[in-house]
Design a protein around this nucleic acid. Structure first.
Length: 615
DNA sequence: TTAGGGTTAG
């Protein structure tokens, strides 16, 4: 008889494994189990639960508990399986209650009990208590339990506790290492991640990927590329996740040479943009950040499948390149394709409206985003609206919106208002915005500069010195302006404001001087009030001449083929005078000039800019 | 029974 039951149990588990793909099937299988009088068998029900928990979107609260309650004397594995079910799909307190009732019924936990408890736990108090229990029952030296405890501490943000567990583990595996490497990377501590990685004996694909994506996510794109090359040398096969990390690194570098290099690698792998929505979306973002929005769109068009990421990246791409109408059009195409926009999509849409002065369109969509599309506006969306109204010159309305918004305005909101006050030279609104900003972001230098420049534009030099003094007291120093330009051999040259170090500086200065003379002949006047210092006009003229983007432009004119686009990147916002010069130079030389500043892209062609002077 | 993922504004 015993043997017969064992065969039946085994048979039931086999049926569970082959048939339980939906809740409906699970119920059929359960009926079969009941008919065969196996519904009290912990082993069979544990397996059924295991499959149920892996099925997505199941009402785990009721059905699994029903299964469980039919078993008269559940064994520790069945308890643990239900604990895991509750830990995964909630409510969490049920899993803790089950654990206590297990102890009360004198059922001793097994290691699986603890890994089930820890797997989804994010409560540090509970986590620490259960860690103690695991120690008392002698399970902390178990590899799985140790790994889930590390996982739990990482989720709770207690990195040092996680590290302590790691250091004390008698046996570790690749999971233990990677879990910690990723945790350090996510916390921004790439040095510790690197240290662990270097000490890892057998570096597998997960570990390599974590380093590449970690560097990419922490704005260290060159390091990310370096590790990608090392990963290839180590013979690790590239997959879509690695590619996405490297593509994102290339996007940050913004250099077209790197872009076409990684594109080639991606397209010649199994993970090309046509079939892989992840790689495709990353490429869209990369091309638009490299200044090539046409290529971004061509990747987008070529994709077989598109999701909310692909659409949102493309919309944001159009937005920062000043193609607002294309962005809005794509937004409506997205809706027609049945893809639900998310909060990021709306940021892109509002940015587009804002840079094109499309106030009514933006306000309309802001008004209906929750009602029609189920996306509740966040403070970030309010920041976009403050920007939209503010840029369009409706500063009072923008201020009113900020003062009546339903949540606490964040730095972005006041920052948008301050930026708009600067554009429209309104020191009064600028003062209100900076009052809050200096509280929220006391060390953000840009805010002090905007306020001081707004005072300067209004000629309020006493206030300028007051803000500058504040900056000195806080020991905030201005980042030097810096620009990069791609020469025709793909090498990137760097220029600082007032640069004298470049080996060809004399030729560059001569070329710039010649250009400015020609531009003056067709009416260019240096915009002296772009200089926020109280110095004489000649000093202002010299300072403007030495701006890094002008040096980069002159270098680009000397070192790129006639007819090709000159691509310049700048770490700060382009100044009004440089913007005028770029416009005029594009007409004078017949060249297309693309400038990526820290805000957006400017496409200069035949005397005009894609931003329509909205930036 | 635990580990790597793309879109965001001032």
């Amino acid at each position: 008889m015993v043997g017969r039951i064992r065969i039946l149990e085994w048979e039931a588990v086999r049926i569970i494994e082959s048939r339980c793909t939906t809740l409906h099937h699970a119920k059929q299988v359960h009926a079969h189990i009941y008919r065969n009088n196996l519904h009290q068998c912990s082993y069979v029900i544990t397996n059924l639960l295991r499959f149920l928990t892996n099925l997505p979107h199941l009402p785990v609260q009721s059905y699994p508990h029903l299964l469980f309650s039919q078993v008269h004397s559940p064994n520790p594995f069945l308890y643990s399986a239900l604990i895991r079910a509750y830990a995964r799909n909630g409510p969490l307190f049920q899993s803790i209650r089950l654990y206590s009732s297990m102890l009360n019924n004198n059922v001793s936990p097994v290691s699986f009990t603890f890994s089930a408890l820890f797997s989804s736990l994010k409560n540090p108090t509970l986590g620490t208590q259960l860690h103690l229990h695991a120690m008392l029952f002698g399970f902390v030296s178990d590899l799985y339990v140790g790994n889930t405890i590390i996982h739990m501490y990482v989720k709770c943000g207690l990195l040092s506790s996680a590290r302590k567990v790691f250091d004390e583990m008698p046996h570790r595996d690749a999971v233990s290492w990677t879990e910690l490497i990723v945790a350090y990377a996510k916390s921004g501590d790439m040095d510790s991640a690197r240290e662990l990685f270097d000490g890892l004996p057998g570096k597998d694909k997960f570990a390599w990927t974590s380093m590449v994506t970690g560097y990419a996510q922490n704005a260290m794109p060159k390091k990310a590329l370096e590790f990608f090359l090392r990963l290839q040398e180590a013979g690790v096969e590239t997959d879509e996740i690695i590619l996405v990390g490297v593509i994102s690194a290339c996007a940050q570098l913004g250099v077209s040479g790197y872009a076409s290099w990684i594109r080639g690698i991606a397209e010649s792998s199994r993970f090309g943009s046509v079939n892989n929505v992840l790689v495709g979306s990353a490429l869209i973002d990369m091309y638009s950040k490299c200044g090539n929005v046409e290529e971004a769109y061509s990747v987008f068009k070529g994709m077989k499948e598109r999701n909310v990421f692909s659409y949102s990246s493309m919309i944001a791409g159009f937005a920062v390149h000043g193609q607002a109408r294309a962005a809005i059009k794509l937004f409506y195409e997205m809706l027609e394709a049945g893809i639900k926009p998310n909060h990021v999509t709306f940021i892109g849409v509002f940015t587009a409206c804002s840079h094109a002065g499309m106030v009514e369109q933006g306000q309309y969509l802001f008004g209906v985003m929750e009602k029609y599309y189920g996306v509740a506006p966040t403070a970030d969306h309010y920041a976009c609206m403050a920007d939209l109204l503010g840029r369009a010159g409706q500063l009072e309305k923008a201020l009113q919106l900020v003062q009546t918004m339903p949540m606490e305005p964040n730095g972005g909101v006041w920052g948008a208002l301050l930026g708009a006050s600067h554009i429209h030279r309104n020191p009064d609104v600028a003062e209100i915005a900076s009052h809050y900003l200096f509280e929220l972001e006391p060390d953000n230098l840009g805010n002090y500069l905007l306020l001081s420049n707004t005072y300067a534009l209004a000629g309020r030099w006493d206030d300028v010195s007051r803000v500058r003094k504040l900056m000195r007291e806080k020991q905030l120093r201005k980042n030097p302006g810096c620009s990069w330009v791609e020469a025709k051999n793909g090498i990137v040259h760097e220029f600082f404001a007032g640069d004298v170090k470049h080996p060809e500086i004399n030729e560059i200065k001569k070329a710039l001087d010649d250009l400015l003379q020609r531009l003056k002949a067709i009416g260019y006047q240096p915009k002296l009030n772009s200089v926020p210092y109280d110095i004489d006009d000649e000093g202002k003229r010299l300072l403007l001449m030495s701006h890094s983007e002008k040096l980069a432009l002159a270098y680009g004119l000397l070192n790129t083929d006639a007819g090709s686009t000159i691509k310049i990147m700048k770490n700060l916002r382009i100044c009004e005078d440089c913007h005028i010069v770029m416009c005029a130079a594009s007409k004078d030389t017949g060249r297309k000039i693309v400038v990526r500043d820290n805000m957006r892209f400017h496409h200069f062609l035949n005397g005009t800019c894609s931003c329509s002077n909205f930036w």
